[in-house]
């Protein structure tokens, strides 16, 4: 079945005529994702290698039956693009854009969440269900189908761990990049619940990093209602206090948000935490072998 990126996905790419938008829309389509439309205001009637372009998401929904949106537009326009998709009746919005002001995302979050619209990201690589569909910028060739659900705040770190798993012959049900911003639409907890309910997922790997307290909150939820085995990896043990480590959300504020605290919270709930991506992959491989 997999989650988010499925065979039922009918994708509209917002920003399809941009360089990155075109590149990834075509990559996603080549992978097998059903890319039904693109949106760039003022470009209605054009097409990108056969993908029809519309002026608005509303048109993409009405005329092409889009149900999922991929947002690849510059940060100044991204919050508006997400709201447009939500307003047009899109069910799932995946936002790749990095650099959206945090206050804008507060507004977006409180608009989409009560309406039951799934927002993934922003500042995320998207979602990939190997062999089924790819939405976003995840390099699909690294991953193969399998029983492991992978959820991560970091794009490239996800690829790293996916690559390590693949090297051990292990594959993924779905890879979910939740994003590195302070305000993101889908949390670790949301992703854990999706994987818990997904028949194709038997194991879960969560990849966290410094900043915020989502990993600690997830640890509590794992103990409470996640019955599938979870393995974690946390990045940023060497990060200094008060410095933003690339991701806007990756910052240790005072004593809050350290990698050590997250590792401790997860281990206290029985979740093994690898000290590096290779070790995390090894722990997963042992779990799978011992099942």
């Amino acid at each position: 079945m997999a989650v988010i990126a499925t065979k039922d996905t009918r994708l509209v790419v917002q920003g399809i005529t941009g360089r990155e938008g075109t590149f990834h829309a075509l990559r996603n389509r080549d992978y097998g994702t059903n890319v039904v439309a693109g949106v760039t205001p003022g470009r209605a009637g054009q097409n990108v290698e056969g993908i029809p372009v519309f002026d608005s998401v509303a048109d993409a929904v009405a005329k092409a039956g889009a149900n999922t949106s991929l947002v690849i537009v510059p940060p100044r326009f991204a919050a508006e693009a997400i709201l447009e998709a939500a307003d047009a009746g899109i069910e799932q919005i995946i936002c790749i854009t990095e650099g959206i002001p945090a206050h804008d995302m507060l507004e977006v979050y409180h608009y989409v969440r009560p309406r039951g619209i799934r927002l993934l990201g922003p500042n995320c690589p998207g979602a990939l269900s190997p062999g089924i569909a790819n939405i976003g910028i995840i390099p699909a060739q690294v991953f193969k189908p399998g029983p492991i659900g992978l959820v991560s705040r970091s794009g490239t770190l996800t690829y790293q761990i996916g690559g390590e798993l693949a090297a051990k012959g292990l594959g993924n049900s779905t890879i979910i990049g939740i994003g590195g911003d302070p305000v993101i639409g889908t949390s670790f907890i949301d992703a854990l619940d999706l994987f818990q309910a997904d028949d194709d997922t038997e194991f879960i790997v969560m990849v966290g990093e410094i900043g915020g307290s989502d990993e600690e909150a997830a640890a509590a939820v794992i103990a409470e209602r996640i019955t599938k085995p979870v393995v974690a990896y946390i990045a940023g043990f060497e990060a200094p206090v008060g410095k933003t480590m690339g991701h806007a959300g990756a910052i240790i504020s005072g004593t809050a948000g350290t990698a050590a605290a997250k590792k401790e919270a997860l281990e206290a709930r029985g979740v093994p935490v690898g000290t590096n991506p290779t070790e995390a992959a090894r722990i997963v491989a042992e779990l799978v072998a011992g099942r």
């Binding site: 705040r153 970091s154 990093e209 410094i210 990045a235």
Partner: peptide, 13 residues
């Protein structure tokens, strides 16, 4: 490197 998470992880490693 590319990507905050991967670079943080590289620093740790």
């Amino acid at each position: 490197g590319n990507g905050a998470g991967l670079v943080m992880s590289t620093v740790d490693v």
